[in-house]
């Protein structure tokens, strides 16, 4: 602990990142450039999220990390350990106990509160990137609100698949102004982005961008009049806890191709099972998945 500054980054860097965060909060959905630092982990492992977390953590915070909803995967465990060692903060896996939650690709099932901050890890912050490779041009498109191209992407989806097949990283419009990439969360989570009591911060380390949604921001998923947005998920219940309202992962469980659908949010699932809920995967339940 003594060999690191609190939360690894030096104070000047944290100030710089906080300024970027404040600017992001002031202009919801706008991508603020920041001087991303080298972190002791590879790009793609959440360096953007880690820098944002490092800049906002205080010694009194309780920190939670989830990776695709889970608290116990490599990425989540190593980032949690990183801040235990460099910041000495309390950590938890319980969503309601955490004051700062760093996430990769999910929003917790349990509604967040005004006392919490959700930090997203973002691989590619620019929603227009796949169709317009020039950064100079995409910036201009954002500044002039030229977002027709975003719909071209959705058009292509329908033309090819008959419906909007984009199932994660589904683009949204923030407060009627900026089109934003919500990071690769499933579109099931998109409705939770809007009107959320918690602060949402997005950090892209390699791309050196930070953006933000202040509490209770209006967030609308883009769509067509005749192909409206739908927050979809697997048409199953959780095999472990029986929840029908949570986003499910599909897990192959044996060599015969047996499958199990279970909550991707491990804390949510554990909590429900502790309360005695049981899913169809357990012997004694009626329909096995």
């Amino acid at each position: 602990m003594s060999e690191y500054n609190f939360a690894y980054l030096d104070e000047q860097t944290k100030r710089m990142i906080r300024r970027a965060i404040l600017k992001g909060l002031a202009i919801p959905g706008y991508q603020v450039p920041f001087a991303s630092r080298e972190m002791p982990m590879p790009y793609g492992w959440g360096t953007g999220g880690v820098q944002v977390s490092a800049a906002i953590l205080t010694p009194e915070d309780t920190f939670k990390v989830i990776d695709q909803g889970a608290d116990d995967t490599t990425n989540a465990v190593s980032i949690r350990t990183f801040f235990e060692r460099t910041a000495g903060v309390e950590t938890t896996t319980a969503t309601s106990d955490a004051s700062v939650i760093q996430t990769r690709h999910r929003i917790p099932e349990k509604p967040l509160t005004e006392d919490q901050i959700l930090v997203y890890q973002v691989p590619i912050p620019e929603p227009l990137r796949f169709l317009e490779p020039r950064e100079s041009e995409t910036r201009k498109m954002h500044s002039l609100e030229e977002y027709g191209l975003m719909h071209v992407k959705l058009y292509e989806d329908i033309a090819r698949h008959g419906h909007i097949a984009t199932s994660y990283g589904y683009p949204v419009k923030v407060e009627g102004r900026y089109v934003m990439d919500p990071s690769p969360i499933p579109k099931f989570d998109n409705p939770k982005l809007g009107d959320m009591p918690a602060i949402q911060l997005f950090g892209a380390g390699r791309e050196q961008r930070i953006y933000a949604l202040p509490p209770y921001t209006k967030v609308v998923s883009l769509d067509f009049e005749d192909h409206p947005f739908e927050a979809s998920k697997a048409d199953q219940v959780c095999g472990l806890c029986g929840a029908s309202d949570s986003y499910l992962d599909e897990v192959i469980i044996d060599d015969a191709g047996g499958r199990l659908f279970c909550c991707s949010d491990t804390d949510y699932c554990t909590g429900r099972r502790a309360l005695g809920h049981k899913g169809p995967a357990f012997p004694g339940s009626e329909a096995a998945a």
Partner: peptide, 17 residues
């Protein structure tokens, strides 16, 4: 189709059909 449709979407057309 997307190439031709882009200008329409750019001026606010939002009906896929």
């Amino acid at each position: 189709g997307g190439n031709v449709g882009e200008r329409l979407m750019a001026v606010g057309d939002r009906h896929y059909g």
